[in-house]
Every structure is written in structure tokens, then in C-alpha cells.
Design a protein around this nucleic acid. Structure first.
Length: 306
RNA sequence: GGUUCCUUGGCCGAGUGGUUAGGCACCGGUCUGCAAAACCGUUUACAGCAGUUCGAAUCUGCUAGGGACCU
């Protein structure tokens, strides 16, 4: 039995600065399909330069989704992304068997490809309470709190990662049952085919590109872009490479030269983290540097047969 | 020419006789709800040579490089 028209999600990923955007647009034009951005920061409005979002010309050349659609103060998450994408895909597939998901937010991609457990939305007061535990009692208090609320999670949690410990506490308080009992880790069945492609340039090439891209961003007006959102700097959406460093400059903590160098450094660190995440995914096809597009098309055709 | 100070790992930086300083980077890793977040692991030293000492990054001498002051 074959499904020649089985809906197919083509994932184009890779570390920041690897050229995902260009490749996905080329593919979309050839396949006549649309692009879903999988980028936790490009999805916000007002950050086009620092997040290297697709340019207006690129956006005009192929319909994009999830680029610049959120206000900076809007809460968003991988789970929300999953449900938004799942709601949109049938639409896209009604006119084309393909859709391209392009981005480097690996958890967002996994949430769509594998599914993510349903968790309750946290009430603000509960969130504030959990945060206060950490502020007042540090990791120790988080540990002792979790020992009562969810010892099972505590046993396998990263004991130094306050973010995740706080999260376990707030989920447990909100849900009334231990966080660990809600984490099934099960893959949700998907009715579509997934083809994962990744760009992985040699490390030195990538780091070079990143360094140059930072300079280009500065020439393109990143400083003004950052200044425009400076008043919102406390928002998580702005706990972002390219902005937090310039905020430090605005605050007089470091000079501009240092801030720009820091952006490059942090971008390289981010790229490495993405690579580490990618490495775990055995379903990814890596595209050779000299024939990205051709190889991508070849893989898409081969994988689309069954 | 004279006096004097300095020289620690890729970078910053503590340590003045006997424990791993530490930070950042690099390299590696974690990851089911803020993920461009948060967190973890590992590696690289004491400018060179000769001495003193049971033992020297730490004391002495010489050499090299750098700074300050004096003539």
C-alpha cells in the first residue's frame, strides 16, 4: 500500500547562520509549498535584524508562517507551537502535499514531530510562588519542596537547574498531581510523513559566517532595533543573543566593542548547542556543502515514495 | 647607561615554599512547556636556564621580553 499523496512535512534545520532560510525558500519555490518557521525568537515582532529573520523580500517570495506574529510580551512555548502548527498544517496540505518547517529551535521541531505531553497552564500566582521559593531558599528549598511534591521527578532531575525544578513545582501545584505523572514521554502518532534535512557546515566555516553576520547586523541597524525594545528588556523574548548584550552596553556595563564581541561569542555557543541537539536525532539527513539543494530534492523524492 | 617593577594555560585573573584558584573561550554533554532559555562535564599554566630546599609559580642568580623613573 502506498500513499503517493501522503502529506509530508519537510524539516530544514541546522545551526544558526548555516543558511537554512535560503535553502528552505529555494525548496519551497520548487515544490510550490509554504514555509513554517520553527524559531522561538523570529516569531516575535520587532526583532528582524537580531534574529536574522527572513527579509521582506524573502517573505514576499514564499508565504511564511510564525514569523513576526507575536508581541514581545506574549507568552509562548513549544507546546503552543505544536498546537498552532497542527492546526495549520491541514490547510497547507489541502493544496500541496508538502510543507516546509524551517528553523533551529529544536524543541519546537520535536514538539511537532513527536508531540509533547499535555500540561496545565500555570496560573500567574502559582508561577510567582514557585519563583519566590527559589529566590528565598535557593536550590535547597526547591529540592526539599519537590521531595514532598514529586520525589520521582527530583530523583532524575538535573539538581542544579533551577528553571526545570521550578517548572516541576509549578506544574505539580497547578495540576494537583506530580509533574512526573504527567510526563508520559510518549510519541504522539502523526498522520503525516516527516523528512528531516539539516545543514551542518564545517565548524570553522560556520563560526566565520557567524562572526561576519554579527558585523552585518550592526551595519543593518541592530543597535537601533535593540534600543527600540530596551524598555521591554525584562521579557523573556528579549533574553536573546544580540539583545541582552546590547542592553548591557546601554546600561553602561560594557563598551560597545565588547558587547558586539560578546554577541559573536554567544551566537557561536548557541550554534554549538543546536548541533549537540541535532546529533541525537538519527532521522536527520545531512546535506553536503557542495550540493545542498540537489541532495535535498533527491532525498525528498526518495522518501516520498512510500 | 643607571634605578626599579612586571612576565601565570587561547584570553582575563588569584595565588609569596607543601591542597583543583576562579571566570570566559575551546571541546564534549543534558533537554517534553519562557529553550537564542537554564544547566552539567573535561582539557590547556606558572617566560627560559641554573641554583637554594625534603619540596618552588612562590626564594636567589643569569638570560629574554615589556613598563616606569633617572642621567
Amino acid at each position: 500500500m502506498s500513499y503517493p499523496d501522503k502529506p509530508t512535512l519537510i524539516v530544514v534545520t541546522g545551526p544558526t547562520g548555516s543558511g537554512k532560510t535560503d535553502l528552505s525558500i529555494q525548496l519551497a519555490q520548487i515544490l510550490g509549498c509554504e514555509i513554517l518557521s520553527a524559531d522561538s525568537r523570529q516569531i516575535y515582532r520587532g526583532l528582524p535584524i537580531g534574529t536574522a529573520a527572513p527579509t521582506p523580500a524573502q517573505l514576499a517570495s514564499v508565504p511564511h508562517h510564525f514569523v513576526g506574529t507575536l508581541n514581545l510580551d506574549q507568552y509562548y512555548s513549544a507546546a503552543q507551537y505544536e498546537s498552532d502548527v497542527m492546526a495549520l498544517l491541514p490547510d497547507l496540505w489541502s493544496s500541496n502535499r508538502y510543507a516546509i518547517m524551517c528553523g533551529g529551535s529544536m524543541m519546537y521541531i520535536d514538539a511537532v514531530c513527536n508531540g509533547i505531553d499535555e500540561l496545565p497552564t500555570i496560573r500567574p500566582d502559582i508561577r510567582a510562588h514557585a519563583l519566590r521559593l527559589y529566590e528565598n531558599g535557593g536550590l535547597e528549598l526547591l529540592h526539599s519542596t519537590l521531595k514532598d511534591l514529586d520525589p520521582k521527578y527530583l530523583a532524575k532531575a538535573d539538581p542544579s537547574n533551577h528553571r526545570r525544578l521550578i517548572h516541576a513545582i509549578e506544574i505539580t501545584l497547578q495540576a494537583g498531581v506530580p509533574y512526573s505523572s504527567l510526563r508520559t514521554g510518549e510519541r504522539k502518532p502523526r498522520q503525516f510523513r516527516t523528512i528531516k534535512l539539516a545543514i551542518n557546515p564545517p565548524r570553522t566555516t560556520l563560526f566565520d559566517r557567524i562572526n561576519r553576520r554579527v558585523d552585518k547586523m550592526m551595519e543593518s541597524g541592530l543597535l537601533d532595533e535593540a534600543r527600540n525594545v530596551y524598555h521591554l528588556r525584562h521579557l523573556n523574548a528579549l533574553n536573546t543573543v544580540g539583545y541582552k548584550e546590547l542592553f548591557a552596553y546601554f546600561d553602561g556595563i560594557m563598551d560597545l566593542h565588547t558587547a558586539v564581541a560578546r554577541i559573536g561569542k554567544n551566537t557561536r555557543v548557541y550554534a554549538k548547542k543546536q548541533l549537540t541537539w541535532m546529533q541525537r536525532d538519527t532521522a536527520i539527513h545531512y546535506l553536503p556543502e557542495d550540493s545542498r539543494l540537489d541532495t535535498a530534492l533527491k532525498i525528498i523524492h526518495e522518501e516520498s515514495v512510500f
